[in-house]
Design a protein around this nucleic acid. Structure first.
Length: 573
RNA sequence: CGGGGCGUAGCGCAGUCUGGUAGCGCGCACGGUUCGGGACCGUGAAGUCGAAGGUUCAAAUCCUUUCGCCCCGACCA
């Protein structure tokens, strides 16, 4: 491809809205343009990257026996009503009516439609297992699109669905995907983790997410280096580190009340009393469907609302007047003591030791409050795991990393097949629901994660397998026909060897070509300049190491041919 | 949806407080000199100041309404 004919609008200055590094670079390097919030145009280079990723997806999906299908983006409401998601999902679903007034929606995922298909086409256990997949556009009216192509309202997704006769068979399909995903992300050159994740509204037994470590990520994952425990903070358990070198206070201080005027938050009281936040009990009143619940975490912990919800069901924070009504004291001075039969859920961090907490009267706190003697509670892990906490499996300190969710896998079970009547007859002629799994990957997120993980101050550095081109040929010529012709010869040879090459045939100064080449991030560059060419040499530059080798044009071609085919072989082709 | 910020030439911004000729840099076009890491000189084109309404002799600037975009939070099937 000739760069002079290609739409690659590189710019020196970045539009100010970009924050994520991948977003800035994609705009600067001419990979994408924004149409509106969460809607992006992929320019030729960006689209080539997506195409490369999709090719890898197809190869790996086909390799586990998955079959590609194409599904409508426009869906009738009925299947969504049958599974209940038409009602559960709110503003996030794009809805519309057709000319006949029928309710329709734009597909945000395809469990309903795939299951609808299965319900009509799968009748017998003999027809399974099946894995169907698609690589198509999904639409979600995101509350807050952000970070360039990381969270958009319209996005491409590879989603596959498995249909099995039993839970054991589902686990085989699940494992197939797990392994395929590892191969896919490895081939895409990503550093990633597979973590345990929340099943969320998907329902089902087990779920994992594939996470690419990046500061731009929206998720946080908990990692244990010693036993390999890996989980999303959404569900990660952890054992809080002990309260510090000083043992929690002994009974000498029990019951001592201290005047703490206008000091309400743990932070304020902690500073006022010169005691670390881990010496405090934080009491949070919430209103569940069954009534008020007092949630207790240690002062240095955050209440994990999802964990709490799993225990007491949906709840909301109590309003200020409610706090006073129910507990008889204003927020800020709540203690867990003497609240009659209000349900108390406490984090196990508080099980031993004694703590400082609100005295249940305005502007006073009490020291030496301990579980058992001062209050009774049901013990549940309801804190957010944090750096330095101990691994729930092996007790070593855990690490937290921000990450981009690049893929997920769910064991769905029968939630959708039951709802949509996808039943089959087993060996004994009994009718049973199909056991399903669903598995997603976002190609745009792979691209963004690859940039996040591979760039420098000059621009992108693409992993070989998903780079828009393999090589960029850069003639540096001020009217030197020999340079031009040598460059074209090299370019032609590369192309005829099946290497994807881009030639910068624009009539521009060397500096501009170099800057653009580094920005665009094609892994290999061949620079042909007048001076070196007179010695019969060209320069072979590696974008990531910046290493330059001076070799003859023939050698350059030979090295590139070998390197590129070896790279593909090494990546599991 | 709550909180904050920003909309002025293709891009990045100044000008708004204190109303009075719409500016700078990059980019773009043309001419010339240059030519291995975003060259230089000269000439030039290009803006309903997000939109609507209002105040005023006069509005980018003040007031009201509205739309859009970004960030934090909530949400994220």
């Amino acid at each position: 491809m000739r760069l002079s004919r290609m739409l690659v609008p590189t710019v020196r200055e970045v539009p100010s809205e970009a924050v994520a590094e991948s977003h800035k670079l994609m705009l600067r390097a001419g990979y994408v343009r924004q149409l509106a919030a969460g809607l992006y145009i992929y320019l030729p280079l960006g689209w080539k990257v997506i195409a490369k990723i999709n090719r890898i997806l197809r190869e790996e999906m086909e390799a586990i026996g998955a079959q590609e299908v194409s599904m409508p983006v426009l869906h009738p409401a009925e299947p969504w009503q049958q599974t209940g998601r038409w009602f559960d999902i709110k503003d996030e679903m794009f809805r519309l009516k057709d000319r006949g007034g029928r309710d329709m929606c734009l597909g945000m995922t395809h469990e309903e439609i795939m299951t609808w298909l299965a319900s009509r086409e799968i009748r017998s256990y003999r027809q399974m297992p099946q894995i169907w997949y698609q690589i198509q556009t999904k639409l979600r009216d995101e509350a807050r699109p952000k970070s360039g192509i990381l969270r958009t309202r319209e996005f491409l997704m590879k989603d596959s669905y498995s249909f099995d006769i039993s839970v054991e068979a589902l686990q085989r399909s699940y494992k197939l995907h797990e392994d395929a995903y590892h191969r896919i992300f490895t081939r895409c050159g990503l550093k990633f983790y597979q973590v345990e994740s929340d099943t969320g509204m998907m329902g089902g037994a087990a779920a994992h997410e594939f996470m690419a470590v990046s500061e731009a990520g929206e998720d946080e994952i908990v990692l244990c280096a010693s036993c390999g425990y890996q989980a999303n903070v959404e569900i990660a358990g952890s054992v809080p580190s002990p309260s510090g070198p000083e043992a929690p206070e002994k009974s000498a201080e029990t019951g001592q009340e201290v005047h703490t005027p206008e000091k309400r938050t743990v932070e304020e009281v902690s500073r006022f009393l010169k005691e670390g936040p881990e010496r405090f009990i934080k009491s949070i009143l919430v209103i569940a469907e069954s009534g008020p619940v007092l949630a207790l975490v240690r002062g240095d912990q955050q209440l994990h609302e999802k964990k709490l919800q799993r225990i007491i069901g949906p709840f909301r924070a109590a309003l200020k007047p409610e706090v006073k009504d129910i507990l008889g004291v204003e927020a800020g001075f709540i203690g867990p003591m003497e609240h009659g039969d209000i349900k108390i859920i406490a984090d196990p961090a508080l099980r031993t030791g004694s703590y400082i907490t609100g005295a249940n009267k305005p502007h006073y706190h009490r020291r030496g409050v301990a579980a058992g003697t001062d209050f009774q509670a049901a013990w549940h892990d309801i804190h957010v795991a944090k750096e330095g906490d101990l691994c729930p499996k092996c007790g070593s300190p855990v690490k937290l990393e921000k990450a981009i969710e690049i893929g997920n896998i769910f064991q769905l079970g029968t939630k959708y097949s039951q709802a949509l009547g996808a039943f089959f007859l087993d060996e004994s002629g009994e009718e049973r629901p199909i056991i399903m799994g669903s598995y997603g990957i976002g190609p745009a997120r792979i691209a963004a994660a690859a940039i996040e993980q591979n760039h420098d101050k000059d621009g992108m550095i693409w992993p070989a397998n998903i780079a828009p081109f393999d090589v960029e040929v850069i003639p540096i010529s001020a009217d030197e026909p020999e340079v031009e012709s040598a460059a074209w010869r090299i370019y032609e040879e590369l192309v005829s060897a099946g290497i994807e090459a881009l030639i910068d045939d624009r009539d521009l100064r060397a500096g501009v070509k170099f800057k653009d080449a580094d920005l665009i991030g094609i892994p290999k560059q061949v620079v042909i300049g007048g001076r070196t060419l007179k010695e019969g040499l060209v320069e072979l530059k590696d974008r990531s190491t910046k290493e330059i080798r001076k070799v003859s044009p023939q050698e350059a071609v030979a090295i590139l041919k070998e390197g590129i085919s070896a790279g593909e072989a090494g990546s599991g082709m």
